[in-house]
Write a protein that binds this DNA or RNA. Structure first.
Lengths: 139, 139
DNA sequence: TATACATATTCGTCAATACGGATATAATGA
DNA sequence: TCATTATATCCGTATTGACGAATATGTATA
């Protein structure tokens, strides 16, 4: 029974990483669970597009989702393959160094810490309030 | 003038890694320059297919080629982006742990060390003879 | 120059994916 | 139950990439 899990799909893993939007999403999730509405706000792109890319990451086994009322929270999960997990962590560390990715995270912080500036997000759950019990553990 | 180089294409980088054949090629090149004829021999796949994948890796800036008479030698080059270089090295380390990749390298060693078993490769240049001055330096 | 050998490219086809736009589903609250 | 909000999926289309088969290019050698 325990051996019924399909082997790790390396091609799918890298395909999932081969898209700018998905890398931006991963960067925003790099150390906390994030609500879809923030992705839409921060990336400034159509909600269906964000949702499709999140579904792609989910199917690739790189993120997982948790529902909280109307909101869906996504977070990164460590791949079952140890090597893949190491590579993913290295990628996240790399993204953190990129200017454009830092800018995204800055916008995320602004959206979370000053929600009054985003009228449509006034009631959206903030990452900080749920970070503690859903922190990503890749290492 | 020095700023005319185009920025590193992250999508292209990961697209290049999102193919089993290309990962097998990179694995074979992980610590030495390799002749195309060995790729064809070790992977047991059509020469045009190998050549196309090598061209893809070349266009992505992950490998470079050197001609030596009729033979073409390919080797991995460090990406200009430091983060990408670290990620690539982590990926190569990961590949080394995979059973199928180890089997490929074993077949490569056999092809190089016992060339008499491969009639069509009798005169092919062996990686060991040129390894010293073309070693990959990612770290 | 003609031939053989190693490698690269082209062509046609098929599958996968990205996208915008429209719509469907799920949860909440009046 | 109906409306609203948040998110997901579907549809048609355009692009990209992988493949086998055929062919072209480059190099050495007779």
């Amino acid at each position: 029974m325990a051996s019924l899990q399909k082997p790790f799909d390396v091609e799918r893993f890298f395909q999932a990483l081969a898209d700018k939007t998905r890398l931006r999403l991963l960067n925003l999730m790099c150390d906390q669970e994030i609500c879809v509405c923030y992705f839409v706000e921060v990336l400034g792109q159509p909600q269906p597009k964000i949702s499709r890319h999140l579904a792609y990451l989910r199917n690739a086994g790189i993120v997982t989702a948790r529902r909280e009322g109307k909101w869906m929270h996504y977070r990164i999960v460590a791949p079952p393959n140890a090597g893949a997990a190491r590579v993913l962590q290295e990628i996240l560390d790399w993204l953190k160094e990129e200017k454009a990715m830092q800018a995204d995270r800055t916008r995320l912080t602004r959206a979370c810490c000053a929600p009054q500036k985003f009228v449509t997000l006034q009631n959206a759950p903030q990452p900080a309030t749920i970070e503690a019990n859903t922190a990503v553990v890749l290492r």
